[in-house]
Simulated scan of single mutants.
Amino acid sequence: MADEVLYERRGVVAVVTMNRPRYRNAQNSAMTYALDLAFTRAVDDRAVRVIVLAGAGEHFSAGHDIGTPERDADTSFPRRAALWWDHTDRSGADRRYAREIEVYLGMCRRWREIPKPMIAMVQGACIAGGLMLAWVCDLIVASDDAFFADPVLRMGIPGVEYFAHPWALGPRFAREILFTGDRFSARRAYEIGMVHRVVPRDDLDAAAMTLAGRVAEMPPFGLALAKRALNQCEDLMGMRAGMDAVFGLHHVAHAHNAEVTGDPLAGLDPKAMKE
């Protein structure tokens, strides 16, 4: 694994930690593939019953890396989540589509299918791509200062690639979050059922580990089957097909931006997005 991700086993719990606190754990490709290796390690370790996903420092994750010095969007990596061609020697929409079906939609779907329960331990910012990582987890424990948002509509893009919004937020609240780009608090996330526990930041680690320990008491194969059953029901309610449809719209937006502004992100960098 790269230095971008830390791995620790605490008894029957594997703690996987995003480790770019200087950049609020913005997800470059090195981090994405290191996460995949860490999750694989946890799945293959028979002693691990539950996986906890965390972020080092003040924030869980500020989303996809769109502007740090270590951004590596055009670097090829050997592991594949989808059997699609390498993106690095392509151009235009071909490159964007190939890359995002691999590192964004493909990886998130791969992690959603992990047969062990996953708990997201969220503090501070959980923005855009950070939401995607929280949403692939089965349970979310948040500190009372955590906040969530998907502001990519400011780029003219209709939500992040792993479009779980109608299922994670409900269709009505999803409209508000997308149409305004506004943040919502951990307490609000709890009220709509997206977050399972809200605790003071100092208690976050203990609360997540307590929940992980409670889940770990259940039979492992039963947990795997229950998780698969719930995922299948979500998909029968249209989640997978809906994501496929929205992924196409997402790339129409990228292509439109590139044609009109010369930039698939419509010229918005991290500073502009923050402002």
Rank of each mutant, 00 (worst) to 15 (best):
R201V: 08
D182H: 15
V246M: 14
A216P: 04
N257E: 08
G129K: 06
E176H: 13
I192R: 11
M273F: 03
C126G: 08
S29L: 15
A142C: 05
Q232V: 13
I157L: 04
D3H: 12
R187M: 08
A241M: 04
A47Q: 14
R90S: 05
M31D: 02
R20A: 08
W85S: 12
M1H: 07
A164P: 01
Y190N: 03
G55T: 01
N28F: 02
L105M: 06
D45R: 07
A34M: 04
C233I: 14
P78E: 01
G57E: 07
V246R: 15
G124N: 10
W111D: 00
L236T: 11
V252E: 14
L225V: 14
A81N: 15
D203E: 14
D269A: 05
A241P: 02
P270E: 03
M273K: 08
L169R: 04
Y104R: 14
G213D: 06
A62D: 12
A241W: 02
R112C: 01
A38S: 11
A81C: 13
A14F: 05
D3C: 00
A98N: 12
A266N: 15
N231P: 00
H87R: 09
A245T: 12
A186E: 01
I66F: 03
E8C: 08
R96W: 14
E275V: 03
A189L: 04
V16G: 03
W167H: 15
E275L: 10
M132S: 15
W167F: 14
M237T: 08
E4Y: 01
V195C: 10
R49N: 04
R24F: 07
P151T: 02
R214D: 10
Y162E: 02
A146E: 09
E275S: 12
I66N: 08
L211V: 13
D263K: 07
V15K: 09
G130Y: 00
G106L: 04
R49W: 00
H59T: 06
I192W: 05
H87K: 05
R90D: 06
R9K: 15
K116Q: 09
M18C: 05
R46P: 06
R99M: 13
T210W: 06
A258I: 01
L6T: 13
Q27G: 00
E176Q: 11
A206C: 02
C137P: 04
